[in-house]
Simulated assay, not measured.
Amino acid sequence: MSNVNGDLAVVPVATQNPLKVSKTATGSGKASRPTQIFLVVMALIWFFPVFYAILNSFRDYAYTAKHGYVSFGGFTMENYKNAWEQANFAHTFMNSVKITVPAVLLTLFLSCCIAFVVARFSFKFNLALLGLFTAANLLPPQALLIPVYRMFRKIPMPEFLSSSGTLLNSHLGLILVNVAFQTGFCSFVLSNYMKTIPRELYESAVVDGAGVLRQFFQLTLPLCRPPLAALATLEVTWIYNEFFWATVLLQQGDKFPVTSSLNNLRGQFFTDNNLVAAGSVLVALPTLIIFFLLQKQFVSGLTLGATKG
């Protein structure tokens, strides 16, 4: 570059190593090493019980009773075979599917309806309505055990919906309980996401003659696919693993879901922990498969809005 007199001016060049600057600016290096060590240690602590259960599920009970659980050996596949037969997993898995699939679909649909009304329209009790649905998640289920049990026992139902004649001891009653407890959380998440949708899209839809139902089904729901995928993954896991209400509201063994059928692996005088561990691994497999299949949609749904200013 030339100066005013026409001579070339020397432009000073930074002598500092750019790699060191970028390394310091990004905060990597020794400053993040304690965090990495902490995360690795916590991951190992959380993974150890899972690894210990999987390891003992492949071990014979007689061997561990003789040598103790702090030993290595006695490996067998009989625990999985016996757990599958004794817990009747082939039948109880189907019961879990009959409960989980309708409950998840109904929860997500009702949550979308509630979230759309709260996010799209402004009225006096807007936030109060959302708080009413969210409040169900703040109550422990044990506090509602007696009133829900008595209510389900007195509500008559047609025979084609419930063989018991009431909501008690029926899959329909268990579906409704799960929907009631999960709708609030899903409504809260979806309403916050729907509020980020630009209002100009709705204004353009109104100009084109789209009514409220068309705005909901053809505009809002397609835009909510990422959060719906994330919530579907969570809801399948929570409802599938639900144990408390299934044990309380169902009274016949042929209607129990797969989680409650683990009680069949308990003996009268002693419990084969290796057999129970094998049954627990079998119960956990479907949720792990679903998570890995929907992992991409789950992560993208959770990170929505994370980079917005």
Rank of each mutant, 00 (worst) to 15 (best):
F185I: 05
M94P: 03
F216P: 11
A90Q: 15
L139M: 14
T107A: 06
A230W: 01
S300I: 03
H67C: 12
G184Y: 01
L304I: 13
P156I: 03
G131Y: 12
L249Q: 02
A62Y: 11
Q295Y: 08
I99T: 01
A210Y: 15
T259P: 01
N264M: 09
P12D: 08
T134Y: 15
P147L: 09
Q142G: 03
L161T: 03
G267F: 14
L132W: 13
Q295A: 09
S300V: 05
N137Q: 10
L288H: 09
A135L: 15
G68Q: 11
L168R: 00
G309T: 05
R120P: 11
A14M: 12
G27N: 04
L108A: 02
A284M: 14
N95V: 06
A43G: 15
S191L: 10
S170F: 00
T92P: 05
V4A: 12
V40N: 11
F48S: 14
M194I: 12
Q252Y: 06
L168P: 00
P102A: 00
P226D: 09
Y240M: 02
F269T: 14
I175A: 02
A25V: 08
L282V: 10
Y240Q: 01
S170R: 00
P198H: 04
L139P: 02
G74L: 09
T303Y: 06
L231K: 04
G309P: 01
M1P: 05
L223I: 12
L168W: 01
H171Q: 07
V4Y: 07
Q182T: 03
T307S: 08
F121E: 06
F116L: 15
P102Q: 00
G165M: 00
A31M: 13
L168G: 00
L219F: 13
Q218I: 12
L130Q: 13
P12W: 05
T35L: 12
G6P: 03
S300R: 10
A277F: 08
P34R: 09
C113T: 14
N241C: 06
N17M: 09
S170P: 01
S162A: 07
D272F: 04
G68A: 11
K23M: 14
T271G: 11
N273Q: 14
K20L: 14
F243T: 02
K154G: 05
G184V: 02
T271V: 15
F216M: 15
N79G: 04
C113Y: 13
Q215K: 15
A119I: 11
T15W: 09
V299T: 04
Q297G: 13
T76W: 10
L167E: 00
M42H: 08
G209W: 10
V236Y: 03
A229W: 04
T166I: 01
S300G: 04
Y193K: 04
T247H: 05
A14H: 11
L190M: 14
R120F: 14
T259N: 04
V281T: 12
L130I: 13
G267M: 13
E78C: 08
F93D: 02
E85N: 09
L294N: 06
M1G: 07
N273H: 10
T233N: 01
G267I: 12
F121P: 05
T303I: 07
T196W: 04
P18W: 02
V11I: 13
K255L: 14
N241D: 07
Y240C: 02
V117A: 14
A230T: 05
K124S: 11
S71M: 09
R120I: 11
F152T: 00
A25W: 09
